[in-house]
């Protein structure tokens, strides 16, 4: 359920991202695809990405207070930022992920 999409060791300045989805719904699949594309385009190694399927472990939704699906959480650096939606607007996603840097 948790897969490392980059496979690389995280550099100290890396963004730690967690994408919460629920099963293989079109929105979830779209979000995964969009995130993969963004990561690939902005340079591998910059992101550490986890994808969590809440259908398989719903208690994580409770633990991490997830309501909307899909939700992308930037866990590091703090503060935590959340983006909900299928991440179809690449520019907006980048803007929101970089806020606070």
């Amino acid at each position: 359920m948790i897969e490392d999409m980059t496979g690389a060791a995280s550099p100290p300045e890396a963004l730690k991202l967690v994408l919460y989805v629920a099963g293989q719904t079109p929105k979830s699949l779209a979000a995964i695809a969009n995130l993969e594309r963004i990561c690939a385009e902005t340079g591998p190694g910059k992101y550490v990405v986890e994808v969590v399927d809440l259908k398989k472990s719903p208690q994580l939704a409770r633990e991490h207070n997830i309501v909307a699906i899909p939700t992308l959480v930037r866990q590091l650096p703090t503060p935590i930022r959340k983006i909900i939606g299928d991440l179809s607007d690449r520019e907006k996603v980048l803007v929101h992920l970089k806020i606070g840097e």
Binding site: G85, L87, D89
Partner: peptide, 25 residues
């Protein structure tokens, strides 16, 4: 279920499946 709009950005389509999963649990 606490949702803080300040830390939330909406980009694209979404649903509240997370809420449903939590309720079901």
């Amino acid at each position: 279920i606490a949702v803080d709009p300040a830390e939330l950005a909406e980009i694209g389509e979404y649903d509240l499946e997370g809420l449903f999963l939590r309720l079901e649990l």
